[in-house]
């Protein structure tokens, strides 16, 4: 490499880094700092926020009403995660054992809905499960039921929506885990007399644990914030932490409290991610979960 191309490479790198940094500073760091600042100011009906600085917004988070919402939110996200895992795990297993062509086709089908805005897809679900939706019309006309089922505006509807939106985030890390799983190890298990159940418990499950954890986090964390799913499918109830935040900003117009709640959620997610990272590097270092740890 001669000097001029070398120096132009350096320049190119500098330009790219500067651009990225400015972008991140302007649109990520700055807004977050503003949220952080807002979260310690006082609310005001006229000016939205005013001095003085206070920590009241943070103490309010721990009021019982929010603890309930927090608990409900955890439950909904948790249920969503478990269902995604139950559907995604076998699906990822079959995907990773398929012929390459079939696999590309199925992955493609799974990703295609992403080309449509998720808000619109949630409205589509509403059309399907609503009182006059496709499911109810079908069941009514075939006389299986005589009053329409109440699916829409229940927690169940919210879970359906969350699972629908978030399933790919479970499948992709799981598939990566299954791809990394050495198929020889399963044959070794057979060779050493392990039944199908034992092969699953002692070999497949521990070695795909990193995928399970990654997938679960990638479903669980966003699920807590997806207020529009809860708004559209769950009715006017406040179900997710995301709904609390949205309501504080847009309905109650208590920006400092909404900001404090945002910060709280960010810290919570960061903590979960840190735990994941620790767990993952522990597993990576050992190559999988230990038998005894199961």
């Amino acid at each position: 490499m001669n000097i001029s191309t070398f120096s132009s490479l350096i320049n190119f790198r500098r330009v790219v880094i500067t651009l990225t940094l400015s972008w991140l500073t302007l649109f990520v760091l700055l807004p977050h700092l503003m949220v952080l600042l807002t979260s310690i100011l006082s609310p005001d009906s006229e000016h939205l926020v005013v001095w003085p600085i206070t920590l009241d917004n943070y103490t309010r988070i721990f009021e019982p009403i929010y603890a309930n919402i927090f608990w409900d939110s955890l439950l909904l996200s948790g249920t969503t995660t478990v269902i995604c895992l139950l559907i995604g795990y076998p699906f990822a297993y079959f995907l990773s054992n398929m012929t390459p062509t079939l696999r590309v086709v199925l992955l493609f089908l799974m990703v295609v809905p992403f080309w449509t805005n998720s808000l619109i897809r949630i409205y589509a679900i509403k059309m399907i499960i609503g009182k006059k939706g496709i499911i109810n019309s079908f069941l009514l006309t075939t006389n299986i039921i005589d009053t329409p089922l109440q699916i829409l505006y229940t927690d169940f509807a919210v879970v359906i929506g969350l699972v629908y939106i978030l399933l790919p985030f479970m499948v992709l890390p799981l598939m990566a885990s299954f791809d990394k799983l050495d198929k020889n190890l399963i044959e070794v298990g057979r060779d050493l007399g392990a039944s199908a159940v034992n092969r699953f418990i002692h070999i497949i499950l521990p070695l795909t644990a990193p995928g399970i954890i990654a997938g679960s986090l990638m479903v669980f964390l966003p699920a807590m914030g997806m207020f529009y799913v809860a708004d559209i499918l769950g009715g006017a109830k406040t179900l997710l932490l995301g709904n609390v935040i949205k309501n504080q900003f847009l309905v109650v117009r208590d920006w400092p409290f909404g900001s404090a709640f945002s910060v709280f959620l960010i810290v919570l997610m960061a903590a979960l991610l840190a735990i994941y990272h620790r767990a993952n590097s522990y597993i990576q270092q050992k190559g999988g979960l230990d038998d005894e740890n199961l």
């Binding site: 050495d182 020889n184 190890l185 044959e187 070794v188 298990g189 057979r190 060779d191 050493l192 007399g193 392990a194 039944s195 070999i203 521990p206 070695l207 050992k286 190559g287 999988g288 979960l289 230990d290 038998d291």
Partner: peptide, 21 residues
């Protein structure tokens, strides 16, 4: 007879040790 019930054992080319054990 399936592999898990045969009185044979194999040493694989890639060793294939269980990395997590």
């Amino acid at each position: 007879l399936p592999a898990e019930h045969r009185p044979t054992n194999t040493v694989f080319q890639s060793y294939a040790l269980f990395p997590h054990m």
